[in-house]
Nucleic acid binder design. Structure first.
Length: 570
RNA sequence: CGGGGUGUAGCGCAGCCUGGUAGCGCACUGCGUUCGGGACGCAGGUGUCGGAGGUUCAAAUCCUCUCACCCCGACCA
C-alpha cells in the first residue's frame, strides 16, 4: 500500500475528550472516529488492525473445532421473553420497534438466537457436541461508555456457544476453549492472565475471564505469586483469619468525634490504626434493613453480598431509612444497642476483632473498646462480604495475594442448562430418551483487544503494535524521493520486491520531510521501518530500525529484502 | 438518573465577565526557498460562535428553553 493511495488521518494533538492513553493514541493515529457517545467508526487504518485480530481469533477458533456462522444483529422480543431476559436484562438492552409496533432488540449477545437455531436443527446425540461462533457487532446501552472503544456501546465481539449431550463433553470443550483463548492472546502478543470469575448476568456456573494486564484496567485481579491461584476480586475469597479473637482488654467508651464520619477520619482523629475500626453499612432487601459490618479499611464486595440468600436483591439504604432506624446520621451509626429487628451481617474478619471502634448511634460520637459477646451479642450471620486486599492469605493456602489491574478481553462460561431448559433444547440420547443439552459460551471483545494492546504497547512517540496486530508490517520511507531519481527508483523497486515476497509494506510516497514521515509511521505503530536515502545509497546501503530500537542499522542494498524479511518474521 | 463542565474553522484553544459586524497555533490551498526527526517566507480559503426563542439600534457575548459531548456520582457512612 502507498500512503498516497491510502487514507491516513493523524493528529498532532489528541482531542480533549480522551483520557486514557490508548484512546488518545487511537484518535491521534486516526484508527477510530467517534460518531456519538460510545459509538465509533473504524477508519481504514484501524479496520486493518481489527481485521488482524479477527483473523487470529478465527484461525484459532476453527483450529479448535468451532464452526463459524453469522446471526442477525436484530432479534425479536419473543425469544427474549422466552428466556426471561426481556424483563431481566434491564436498560442495557437496546429495544426497538418496527413499523407494526412489534418489539425487537439490537443483540447484546446471542444465547437466545443460537439456542433457537440449535433446538430446530439438532435432534440427536449424534449431532453433538456442536460449537458455533460468530464475529459481529453487538450493542449494549452502557450507563457510561468510557475510554473510547474500551467500553463502547457498539463493539465487535466473537461469541461462541457450545452444545453437549453431557457435562463431561462440556468440560472437555470448556478446557479446549480455555487453551484456545490462551493461544489467541499469546499470538496477539499480549501479557494476559486467566482468572476465575463471577458469572454475572449471563448466568451459569464455571467461569474464567481473560485479562490483559494494564494499570488503567477497570477490573482488579487477585493472584498469588506462590501458586497458580488467580481470581477477579469480585470473586476472590477472603478467608477467615487464622488468629483467634483476642480477649477484650478495654471497656466500651463513648467518645465525641464531631464531623468525623468516615473510619479514616475517626481513626486519624482518635489516633488508632484504621484496622481497629468497623464500618457499618445499611442495606435494604425484601422491605427489611440489614446492618453489614466490615473492617474500616476494607470495602464491601457487592457481588459476594448479593449471594447471601436473603440479600440477593439488596440495595443501599437511603439516608432517611438510616435516620429512622438508627436515630443518628450516617457516619455515626453502629451495631451497639440497635433494634433486634435489624439483623447484623458480620464479615469474617470483623468476627475475629476485639476492642474495636464503631459509630455510637448518636450524632458526633463513636464507641471505642467494643467487643462481641459483651457489648453486642456474638455474631450470628458471619459471611465473606469484603473485597480481598494485597497481603491477604491466598484461598488455596499457599501464600499471600497480590492485586493487579486488568482489562477483560475474554470470558468463558459453563452455562449448563440455564438456557437449554428455558428454551427446551432437547435431544434424544443413545437409548432414545429425551435429554436437555449442556451449554457453554465463550466471548472475546475484538474491538477492546485493540485498545488493550495499545494500552500495553506504546511509548512517547505513539503506538507499538505487536506483530500480529500491526496494520502494516513495514514502513518504507524514502527520503527526498521527489528530488533523487536514485532514491525513488530504489524505493519503488524495494516496494515491489517486498510486496512480491509477501511483506505487508506501506510505502510513504508523500515526499514529505523525513521528520513528518518518521513521526507518522511511529505514531501509527508500524513495527519495522526501512529508510532509503541518498546518504545510505552512496554507500550502497539502506537503513533498518525496529519500532523499539534505539537507533537504525545499515544494511547493504543487495541484502535488504532478505534482511527485512528476517526481521519481520523474526 | 443526580451533580458539575464544555460547545467558537479539521484538531487544540482565545474572545464572553464589561454587547459594537470573529481571532490565534497547527492543519489545508497556491507559489518560492528548504529537505535525515513534526521547516521557512509570501499569498489564500475555511465558521449557520451547537440549536431555537427572547432582550437590544446592535448578541459569540445578556436571559429562557433545548440538544450534544465530557467528567464525577448513583448512597461503601
Amino acid at each position: 500500500m502507498r500512503v498516497s493511495q491510502f487514507f491516513l488521518s493523524t493528529l498532532r494533538e489528541a482531542p480533549a475528550e480522551a483520557e486514557v492513553v490508548s484512546h488518545q493514541l487511537m484518535l491521534r493515529a486516526g484508527l477510530i472516529k467517534q460518531l456519538t457517545r460510545g459509538v465509533y467508526t473504524w477508519m481504514p487504518l484501524g479496520l486493518r488492525v481489527l481485521r488482524k485480530v479477527e483473523a487470529v481469533v478465527r484461525e484459532e477458533m476453527n483450529a479448535a473445532g468451532a464452526i463459524e456462522l453469522s446471526m442477525p444483529a436484530v432479534q425479536p422480543a419473543e425469544l427474549w421473553r422466552e428466556s426471561g431476559r426481556w424483563e431481566q436484562y434491564g436498560p442495557e438492552l437496546l429495544r426497538i420497534k418496527d413499523r407494526h409496533q412489534r418489539d425487537y432488540c439490537f443483540g447484546p449477545t446471542h444465547e437466545e438466537v443460537v439456542s433457537d437455531i440449535v433446538r430446530r436443527e439438532v435432534k440427536s446425540y449424534r449431532q453433538l457436541p456442536l460449537n458455533l461462533y460468530q464475529i459481529q457487532a453487538k450493542f449494549r446501552d452502557e450507563i457510561r461508555p468510557r475510554f473510547g472503544v474500551m467500553r463502547a456501546r457498539e463493539f465487535v465481539m466473537k461469541d461462541a456457544y457450545s452444545f453437549h449431550a453431557d457435562k463431561a463433553s462440556l468440560d472437555k470443550t470448556y478446557r479446549e476453549m480455555v487453551d484456545c483463548y490462551s493461544r489467541i492472546f499469546t499470538r496477539l502478543g499480549l501479557k494476559f492472565r486467566a482468572v476465575a470469575a463471577d458469572t454475572g448476568t449471563i448466568g451459569g456456573t464455571g467461569s474464567h475471564e481473560f485479562h490483559v494486564l494494564a494499570d488503567s484496567g477497570e477490573d482488579a485481579i487477585a493472584w498469588c505469586p506462590d501458586s497458580d491461584y488467580a481470581a477477579n476480586v469480585e470473586l476472590a475469597e477472603a478467608i477467615e483469619p487464622f488468629k483467634p479473637r483476642s480477649t477484650p482488654a478495654q471497656g466500651m467508651k463513648k467518645v465525641p468525634t464531631p464531623g468525623k464520619t468516615t473510619c479514616e477520619a475517626v481513626s486519624e482523629f482518635l489516633g488508632f490504626p484504621i484496622e481497629k475500626s468497623v464500618k457499618s453499612i445499611v442495606v435494604a432487601a425484601n422491605d427489611s434493613l440489614y446492618l453489614l459490618l466490615i473492617r474500616g479499611d476494607h470495602t464491601l464486595n457487592e457481588i459476594k453480598t448479593s449471594k447471601i440468600r436473603f440479600l440477593s436483591k439488596f440495595r443501599f439504604a437511603t439516608e432517611d431509612e438510616i435516620k429512622n432506624a438508627f436515630r443518628s446520621r450516617p457516619g455515626y451509626i453502629g451495631p451497639v444497642g440497635i433494634s433486634s429487628m435489624i439483623p447484623i451481617i458480620v464479615d469474617r474478619t470483623v468476627a475475629k476483632m476485639s476492642d474495636f471502634v464503631c459509630g455510637a448511634n448518636e450524632d458526633g460520637h463513636h464507641l471505642t473498646g467494643v467487643n462481641f459477646g459483651r457489648d453486642i451479642k456474638e455474631p450470628e450471620h458471619v459471611f465473606d462480604i469484603r473485597n480481598v486486599v494485597a497481603g491477604d492469605a491466598s484461598p488455596d493456602g499457599k501464600g499471600r495475594l497480590e492485586i493487579l489491574r486488568g482489562i477483560e478481553v475474554g470470558h468463558v462460561f459453563q452455562l449448563r442448562a440455564k438456557y437449554s431448559r428455558e428454551m427446551n433444547l432437547a435431544f434424544l440420547d443413545e437409548s432414545g430418551k429425551s435429554q436437555i443439552m449442556e451449554m457453554g459460551c465463550y466471548g472475546i471483545g475484538i474491538t477492546r483487544i485493540v485498545a488493550a494492546a495499545i494500552e500495553q504497547n506504546h511509548d512517547g512517540r505513539g503506538i507499538i503494535f505487536p506483530r500480529a496486530l500491526a496494520p502494516f508490517e513495514l514502513a518504507l520511507t524514502p527520503i527526498g524521493m521527489g528530488k533523487s531519481a536514485r532514491v525513488r527508483e530504489t524505493a519503488e523497486r524495494l516496494y515491489r520486491e517486498l510486496a512480491a515476497a509477501g511483506v505487508d509494506v506501506l510505502l510513504d510516497d508523500r515526499d514529505e520531510r523525513p521528520g513528518v514521515m518518521f513521526a507518522d509511521m511511529e505514531l501509527i505503530g508500524i513495527p519495522h521501518r526501512a529508510v532509503v536515502g541518498e546518504r545510505g545509497l552512496k554507500n550502497g546501503q539502506v537503513e533498518y530500525q525496529g519500532r523499539r530500537d534505539e537507533r537504525a542499522e545499515s544494511v547493504p542494498l543487495q541484502d535488504a529484502i532478505n534482511y527485512l524479511k528476517s526481521k519481520i518474521c523474526g
